[in-house]
Nucleic acid binder design. Sequence first.
RNA 1: GGGUGUUUAGCUCAGUUGGGAGAGCGACGGCCUUACAAGCCGUAGGUCGCAGGUUCAAGCCCUGCAACACCCA
Length: 925
Amino acid sequence: MKGTFEPSLLEGALYAEWESSGHFAPAGNGRPFCIAIPPPNITGRLHLGHAFQHTLMDALIRYQRMKGRQALWQMGTDHASIATQMIVERQLAADGISRDAIGREEFVNRVWEWRDRSGGEISQQLRRMGSSLDWSRDRFTMDEGFCTAVNEVFVRLYEDGLIYKRKRLVNWDPVLKTAVSDLEVDNVDEQGHLWRIRYPLNGVLTSSGADHVVVATTRPETMLGDTGLAVHPDDPRYRGLIGARARLPLVDREIPIVADPHVDPEFGTGCVKVTPAHDFNDHAVGERHDLACINILNADASINDNAPAAYRGMDRMEAREAVVANLTRLDLLESVEPHALTVPRGDRSGAVLEPWLTDQWWVDVKPLAEPAIEAVRDGRIRFVPRQYENMYFAWMRDVQDWCISRQLWWGHRVPAWYDSQGNVYVGRNESEARNKGGVPDGTPLTQDADVLDTWFSSALWTFATLGWPEQTRELERFHPTDVLVTGHDIIFFWVARMIMMTLRFTGDVPFRTIYTHGLVRDAHGAKMSKTKGNVLDPLDIVDGISLEDLIAKRTADLTQPQMAAAIEAATRADFPDGIRAYGTDALRFTYCALASPHGRDVNLDLGRIDGYRNFCNKLWNATKFVLMHVDGDDADSPAPLGLADRWIRSRARRLIEDVERAIGEYRFDLYANAVHEFAWREYCDWYVEFTKPALWRNEEDAQAARAARRTLLAILDVLLRVAHPLIPYITETLWREARAASGQTPGTIMLDPFPQADDLEHDAEAVASIEWLKAVVVGIRNIRGEMGIASRVGIDLIFQAGDATDRERLRTAESLLRRMAGVESITWLTADEDAPPAAVQVVGNLKVLVPLAGLIDIDQECERLRKTISRFERDLARSRGKLGNENFVTKAPAAVVEKERDKVRDLETKLATMREQLARLNAAP
RNA sequence: GGGUGUUUAGCUCAGUUGGGAGAGCGACGGCCUUACAAGCCGUAGGUCGCAGGUUCAAGCCCUGCAACACCCA
């Protein structure tokens, strides 16, 4: 094995080979295991959040594949109706083309062209992350089969009365000129104003004798559509006015004053204007009191002809100024003051949304929600972590009807047709609609112009990707899928709707477990956004990027170009040297290590990635070491295992057990930590060092050397396979080298069985002996470190006291001890023999003495001893205190009490030894 | 306003039916020890947000408060 660890040299070629060999497709006869990828939008590039999610899914898939299951990771992409249409429109606009100019058909063609270009980029990024997706089954939410599924679902829900068309208030985006669902509304706290306006009364006076009432509003322009005033029925200020009439200023319309218990007497003056056509609450009030509903807005939120001529054609904000100016002129404006309010904005366009009365298609969600709630309640679907279940229940219990039509061109067109009288015919296609409606062939029908909400199609994801509505083999085999890995931000958008639709149409759940992870944030915990200029492309971490390129990337195409300077400064501060090439494995390992059990957000810190890249390097070098010593002959010639060999096998067994448990609980952090800890702290730091004496004395003890070589190789093999789901590239590379070195023809680690704990025996005696040895070695190193004894200086070690076990352990481990602690000679004294002045460590009943002569400063050692003694004294006092407490002794479990007694005995022994040693040193010349 | 979560070492975070406070990074000191300086050896550092309560025993359970984050209205 040559060279150093260089991720870029091994990743690309390996993936291409895996893919072309067909290893990503499910194979074998094992129990099926399936994950459907949350389909990335075709709109853009993968971000760090995707990469995080895909790492976790790939780890699960690779693990299950190695466990022998038929593992399918279903690939696919989402057409992302609004987002995609916006992007393509923007690109056309840059060329001076408007969507209206080229027409619907041509526009949709352009989007398909764009999708064919852009979709490839996403797949390349997914491949670079090592994702073992089954590309041969790639799906798209607008491919032919998916369109069939969408129409099928629409028609069946319509026939069951769960889809209906109705004129209702919707959230209207006046920039995109489409309805959006409640979930697509961002409620943003903003600073605005509260205007108090006088509405003259018609023939009555208020209780205080005024000829008008004052109405407070944050949106004065909507008064053009007012059709009433409302007060609380118990509000004494207005009791006499209920049923009376007021005159609407500027419009000169007579409007009634009604009493409604939903009016908040505390807000403003306690008397509110009612605009049923432009406010959800007012709409409800209007319906309760039979008030007229006057729409004053056009689709672009300009004022329409239902308003007085003076305002027609004005934008709503312009109209607001005009209304306020005119009220002022008429002396009807009592006051205006700053006021904090919540403004509804479209999550895509950012535009202020208007409640607007339009014809839309709706899903009656309640009947779908009940079985979906039940599926989670009875445990057929499990959330990990658990707490998201509450959020899910809360939302589902109070779920509102879902507006699924969008006034867009890109998406699934609503499968409904109209004749010239406006009668509607719903069918899987035009001819079915015509037949079912009994419409003669000669009568022209026009299809509904609207498309469906993107989430309507993605709600069918798990079963439509497997072939539904046809009853395919894949559907039978892989559905329900096993686990959904997703962010908590789309539980309502997507997860809940998948559960509802899947239960309805397959009679089963879409998945058994929902693993929700947090969002990936930057190292400071800030949400990544293009506007803030703190986004990172996962591939820039994999491949590295220079500072200047990163700045250029972050400041390109900004919607707010004035931010460029600040973004550049922040980028320079965070990445003074740009980003080095960490490789995919290091990034993946970092993601797993940071995947917390609480599903909370992940702050991605380059320092962490750096550490895990070093870990990959460590694996590389460890393998290099092993292969330097291995020769193919060992494979078939067993040799009795030495102490260290038996110890590391016991440890490897525990590694497998720990990892199995961790992945079963979706504890990717524990998985990563277990691998890291074992590979570095046990295999490299101790076991590799233990083998060196044997390897170097090959001539004298060929058996021991062979046992060491075989164990080095066997455990490396286990380690690489255990780590493979996390870090696929380097493990595949090293595993092949290792297999080749032992004379085997390697296939792929991907399909090699995951190690089984039962193939490795636990040897309690070996573990105890090595733990003893480590305690002695660490004790000596501690003295070396604190006394500044260089490692090249050999030590003439003295053991004193101790028992037969200590002697036996020294006998079996002496050569290891000499090597690990730099020991020249070992002398064993009985407890009553005189030892020369020395620094001491106590291991059980055994004193480990490092003689001072020429090496150690007596005062320094005394100081060290005093420190240790006082620490032990504190511990001892606390333990004695506990044991002195009768309640503790009688009420605590016997095991706990006994443990405390052991501790006291141990501390007493150590303290006695150290005090004696201290006295001796103090007496020394 | 309602809900959920978080608060542990300088930083990022673990802490598994309540039983001796941990890791990584960073800091400090020492090492070019024949796999690895992307390394090796060692050291320091915490009133576990605050105040109560339950218990022989609380980072963990209960109550209240504070700060922060997110979801919903």
